[in-house]
């Protein structure tokens, strides 16, 4: 346990007690433990605007106990700047802290600030791999990865290929990881309109999504990906009819392997006057058998089939 009141290094500081607001400040509450003592010293150094090495130690101690306390992070960032502190050392300290607090927001913003000041992403992708180990869908980590790609232009050339290989590995590990699918879209189509107009890339990505659908036909992510490409590239929906028929057909209504395939078939059938009745049948199957929890939605879709 760290103790400040008996530490000669802190003898010049008088801690400022907690003020909980309101007409009866709670300073009188006899509440003493490691955290409240450290906070008392933080309030005191903040009041005299001290930025020093010992302030870094103090903020580190408080962040360890309570990493979501945003004011502490901001004060630490200010102190780093005032001291012109070595930022590589700061990143080394941040790594284990981030692993301990997977859902924390402040840690990522702090990291982003430091890496952009260092202007060097070296080591960051390895760190991300470590972070995704315990939680491969962590929103903060994926957002940070996107920031890295944007900040350092990692979608072009050799770097771009590396990024694509990496996300392919992530989807390979878990084909249901929607965050990885979103990142693939970001890497392939997120940097401008160019790639969605490139037939070779569009075909490659459609093939990629189709292969993933074969592995897990009921998985939403590659279906969303496929629909995104079709809309973006203005590919005719009907070109996917044979593909959809591999997972669902009206001839075998008891043998549907994917409600998403049935949905796609309904969309294709809805485009043609002669097959509208088939679209109706598909929506009925979805409403009554394969996705009854969303029955009103499928009924709505059926009603939009204008005669």
């Amino acid at each position: 346990m760290v103790n400040y009141s008996d530490d000669p290094k802190w003898a010049d500081i008088t801690p400022i007690p907690q003020d909980d607001g309101g007409p009866h400040p709670l300073a009188a509450i006899a509440y003493s433990d490691e955290y409240s003592e450290a906070m008392g010293y933080l309030r005191a150094v903040m009041a005299k605007e001290e930025h020093s090495e010992r302030v870094l130690d103090l903020t580190e101690h408080i962040i360890e106990m309570n990493p979501a306390h945003y004011t502490v992070w901001l004060y630490r960032a200010k102190t780093l700047k005032e001291l012109n502190f070595d930022l590589k050392t700061e990143i080394e300290w941040l790594n284990p802290a981030a692993l301990k607090h997977l859902k924390n927001y402040q840690i990522w913003h702090h990291r982003q600030t430091i890496i952009s000041q260092l202007n060097d992403p070296a080591g960051e992708t390895d760190f991300i791999d470590t972070m995704l180990g315990p939680d491969s869908k962590n929103y903060h980590v994926w957002s940070y990865r996107q920031w890295l790609v944007k900040q350092f232009g990692l979608w072009k050339g050799e770097e771009g290929q590396k990024e694509l290989d990496w996300v392919d590995g992530m989807i390979g590990d878990d084909v249901r990881n929607n965050s990885a699918w979103n990142h693939r879209w970001f890497v392939v189509f997120g940097c401008g309109e160019e790639n969605i107009r490139d037939e070779a890339i569009v075909n490659r990505e459609m093939g990629y999504a189709k292969a993933a659908i074969h592995k897990a036909p009921q998985n939403q992510s590659p279906w969303n990906y496929l629909h995104g490409i079709i809309r973006g590239s203005k590919t005719a929906l009907s070109s996917l009819k044979d593909f959809a028929l591999q997972f669902a057909s009206l001839e075998n209504p008891d043998d549907v392997h994917s409600s998403h395939a049935l949905d796609l078939l309904a969309m294709i059938y809805a485009q043609d006057e002669d097959t509208k009745e088939k679209a109706r049948q598909a929506f009925d199957l979805l409403a009554n058998k394969y996705d009854p929890v969303r029955k009103p939605y499928w009924n709505y879709r059926k009603e939009t089939l204008v005669n």
Binding site: Y139, S143, Q146, N182, W185, F186, G190, Y225, H227, G228
Partner: peptide
């Protein structure tokens, strides 16, 4: 706005 119809924290971020 994303390709799946949803929205994220910033352009390109996963729908949530």
């Amino acid at each position: 706005a994303n390709f799946d119809g949803g929205y994220g924290t910033s352009p390109g971020a996963e729908s949530h």
